[in-house]
Structures are given as structure tokens and as C-alpha cells.
Nucleic acid binder design. Sequence first.
DNA 1: GTGTGATCCACCCATATGGGTAATGGCGCA
DNA 2: TGCGCCATTACCCATATGGGTGGATCACAC
Lengths: 211, 211
Amino acid sequence: MHALPKVITAAVVEDDRGSREALVAALSAVDGFHCSGAFASGEEAVVQLPELLPDVVLMDIQLPGWNGIETIQRLKEKMPGSDFIMLTVLDDEESVFRSLCAGASGYLLKHASVMEILEAIRVVHEGGAAITPDIARLVVRSFQPQSTPGLSHRESEVLGRLCEGENYRSIAEALFISTNTVKAHIKGIYGKLHVNTRAGAVKRALRDRLV
Amino acid sequence: MHALPKVITAAVVEDDRGSREALVAALSAVDGFHCSGAFASGEEAVVQLPELLPDVVLMDIQLPGWNGIETIQRLKEKMPGSDFIMLTVLDDEESVFRSLCAGASGYLLKHASVMEILEAIRVVHEGGAAITPDIARLVVRSFQPQSTPGLSHRESEVLGRLCEGENYRSIAEALFISTNTVKAHIKGIYGKLHVNTRAGAVKRALRDRLV
DNA sequence: GTGTGATCCACCCATATGGGTAATGGCGCA
DNA sequence: TGCGCCATTACCCATATGGGTGGATCACAC
């Protein structure tokens, strides 16, 4: 099949006038793209964008009032079919993860070229995620196990079962030991994880991928 | 600074002889790359690769004996400084996430061109992650909240606190309600989440990002 | 105007959990 | 050989938790 000359509509939310107008100009000039709107604040975007329903929204993070992440959260509810790409100077883990959790499908740094931005728009519109390799590494690393705080083999085993919601007796039976021993191991785990409840242990285990 | 003509050493673990030799040939032929070894099974790789210590390892998933994911887990321990790229025909979520959790920094499908593979090797060696936009979308989507099974606002609030390891009393005080009411909400949560312990609820909440 | 769901509260009861303390044997390392 | 860590078990006790049942108000929809 030969590529349909389908135009991708995109909108811009960016408080810096220069950047905003440059993006609008690029979207207007390049074949295959159309700029359906540009806004200087999240508040304006939230009231107007759901009407325009662009395919893709380019979003700055640092905005006056609602920041880009809050804005995306609100927009996602009203326009779940649209895709969002963060376009920001911030490259810290916090900003990246918060953006992705809020619903962004792409994350570009502002030194990206116009061509890269347009390519990113095309990518997310085709169902991909537009993240640069270094951002991707952050994301991928978050899947990998963190340094376990010296849990013994047995303790890891017990922790795994705690995470499954098993109780003393169930764990004891599975490991062929007494419930008292299970308690002893759990005490060890709590000490090493600096928690004192199952919920706390499960949270640490899942969040830090100790399991 | 002008690019150092530093050679990146790479190894291949792939049971199909044709594919393996093609990769070795590419790595040997192209400037800037050097092939330090090729193996047809995980078992062979695990004994020999830690000696060769290549910068990057290309790993098939479907191998006889240990699969590529198990193999990476073992290799990561012995050579934490090396990077791993999966090179596979499998594109299901399961394989992707298992690979990343095992320590892969890249994930390519086998229809990738030789140039793309070499580029991926360069990328991971420079500290990035080599994943295609469609794989990236899977990964990014995993950060985003799943459909909450009809938890009420109050129940979400309580669930959030359960995940923090708070107990009845602590939650009750924070929300200015009685512990009995907290119990009532927790019962509601357990029902909707199909669990019957805190640990189970916390697990569901964190794994499915309902919080 | 009746029903449904959210939110709030109370009481009973069996069991699970967390904390404290103590003891045994094995294993590796100094 | 002694010290430390691990795995194992035991016992006591206060509190937390989960399940069952029942009832109140309020809002919103049919």
C-alpha cells in the first residue's frame, strides 16, 4: 500500500512565544502536518483542545499555572484518543516518569530539531512511543532489579510469597517449615527493609523490584 | 572532541547457524565493531563470555536449553558491565518485559536490518536503550494507570493509604472517620479487587497502578 | 418515589500478625 | 577455635485484621 497523504493534526501548548510560534510555523509549513491550535497555558488548552481534538499534542512541562503534567492528566480524560508528547528542557527521572504516568507517549528534549519533532509526531500517531535512547534507558532501567538490601535466599523466598498474599501457614506449608520459622524470616525481612507491616514489605518489594 | 576510532566488541548468542554467521560477518566487516565470540547456546555463552567480556551481547530468546532470558540473568551477574540486546522474532509483551527485567538494554526484532543492529549496539554502548518505537509504546504504556475496577473515590483514597502500610486507626485519623468505616471501605475494596488481604490489595494496586 | 450506590457507623468473633525473648545446629571466615 | 550469619523452632502476649450482620443518611437516576 502506498502512503496515504493523510494529514496529522497537532496542537502546541508552550508558554514561550518564540518557541510556540516556531512550532506552529513548522507544523504549518511541512507537508503532512497541520497545526490545529496553540496555547500558552494549560488552562486555555484544557478548555479549547477537547473541541479541536488534534491527533497529537506537543506539551511543555514548565508552564505558568498548571504544569504540563497536570494538564495532560486533565486532557487525557477528555480526549483519550489523542497522543501527547512532552517537549521540555527537563531531563530528570522525576519529570520523565511523572509525564509517562500522566499519559505521555513521547518525551523529547527541547534541543530536538524540528525534523526530529515532526518525526516524533509521526511515530506516536502510528502507535509508537517517541523517546530518545537515553530517556529509554532510564525507563528500561526502572524494570531492572535494584540492589537488594542483603536479603538471604530464604528471606527472598518468603518475601515473594508475602507479595502473593500468603499467610504464615500457607508459606510454612509451601516451604516445609514451621509457622514460627516463617515469622522469624519475616522479622528478618522487616528489619532489613525498615518496615513493620506486610503492606510495607510488599510495597518495597514491588516498587524496588526485589522480587 | 573528534570521535575516537574506538572499537566496540560484541558477541552473539544465537542457535540458528545462518543468522549467527551473518551477524558475525557483519560485526567483522564493519569498521568500529569487533566480534569477540559467537555461541549457539546459553550454556556455552555462560561459561565463555565472562572471559571475553564483550561490550555488548546480542542474544536470541528462543534457544535450546536455557532461553535467552535465563541466560542474560546468569550473565548479568558475572559481567555487570556489559550490555545486552535481545534479537528475536518474539514481540509479545511477556517476552519484552521479561527481557527488560532480566537486564536487557535493547530489544530488536529479527527483521531489523544489519545497519539497525549495528546502530543499536552503538546506542546501548553509549548508555542508551535500543528499542523500537512500537516496543517503546508497550513499555511506556505500562507506566500508565489501568482501568480501575470501579473503586469509589473514598475507596481509592483508602487503598492509597493501605499501600503506605497504614493501619485502620491511622487511616481513620487521616480521613476523619471511624475505624469501623475504614473497615467498611476496605471490605469494599477487597470485593472489587477480588482479594482478601492487605498484601493482595497492595500488590494489585501497585502492579496495576490503581494508585 | 423508589431503587441504587456511596458514605458513614456499630458490634461480635475467630484468626492473623508483630514484637519480644530464647535456643539449637550448620557453615564459613579469621 | 571462636565469631557471625543463617535457618530452624518454640512460647507469650497485645493488637490488628477479616468476615458477618445490621442500620443510618444522602444524592442521583429511572
